[in-house]
Simulated scan of single mutants.
Amino acid sequence: MTAGSNEEAEYLAKTLVLEGLAACVNVFSGVRSYYVWEGRAEEGAEVVLVAKTTKAIFPKLKARVLELHTYDCPCILALDVSDGHGPFMEWVVSQVAG
């Protein structure tokens, strides 16, 4: 995901973790984004968030981000993980399984 400010990114990250929708969210500030929006070339500072969750929980995470996000069309992507460190993967599942 991306957010327009550090404050919004931190709010999203904390909310997703505290609500059990993500086991962890990494926040990367200082990102420059270049894109075309509504026919105009745009650029600006953004903050990238990487939320660790499960495929089963992702629809709830996405719905919650859509409720909270200030963008009209937030970038929310699900990336399939083909492999990972077993104990970490198990920890993610335990954190979002409720």
Rank of each mutant, 00 (worst) to 15 (best):
V36W: 12
S94T: 05
A51K: 01
S94K: 08
G84W: 10
L68N: 08
W91L: 12
G84Q: 12
V50T: 09
E67R: 12
E19V: 07
F28L: 02
V31I: 14
A13I: 08
C75H: 11
A41E: 12
V25A: 04
R64E: 08
V50C: 02
V92I: 15
V25N: 05
V36H: 10
P59D: 12
V50I: 15
I76T: 01
S94M: 04
T15P: 08
E43V: 07
L66R: 13
L77P: 02
G30T: 00
L66Q: 15
W91T: 13
E7H: 00
F58S: 13
S82T: 11
S82Y: 08
L16Q: 06
V81A: 14
L49F: 05
L68Q: 14
E43D: 15
F88C: 01
V93G: 09
L68G: 14
A41W: 11
A9H: 00
G44V: 01
L79H: 01
A97S: 15
A23S: 15
T2W: 08
W91A: 13
C75V: 03
K52Q: 12
R64A: 05
L77Q: 13
E10C: 07
G39V: 11
V81I: 13
A13C: 08
H85V: 05
S5A: 12
I76H: 05
E67S: 12
L61H: 12
H69T: 11
V50K: 00
V93K: 15
C75P: 02
G4P: 06
P59A: 10
T2F: 05
M1Q: 02
L18H: 14
T2S: 10
T53H: 04
E10W: 03
K14L: 12
K14N: 15
V36C: 13
L12T: 03
L18I: 05
V96S: 02
A45S: 11
G20Q: 07
Y35A: 06
E67L: 12
Y35T: 03
F28I: 00
A51S: 07
N6I: 04
S5I: 07
A56N: 09
V50W: 00
G20D: 10
N26Q: 06
G20N: 13
V48E: 00
T54M: 14
F28R: 00
L16C: 10
E90N: 14
V31C: 07
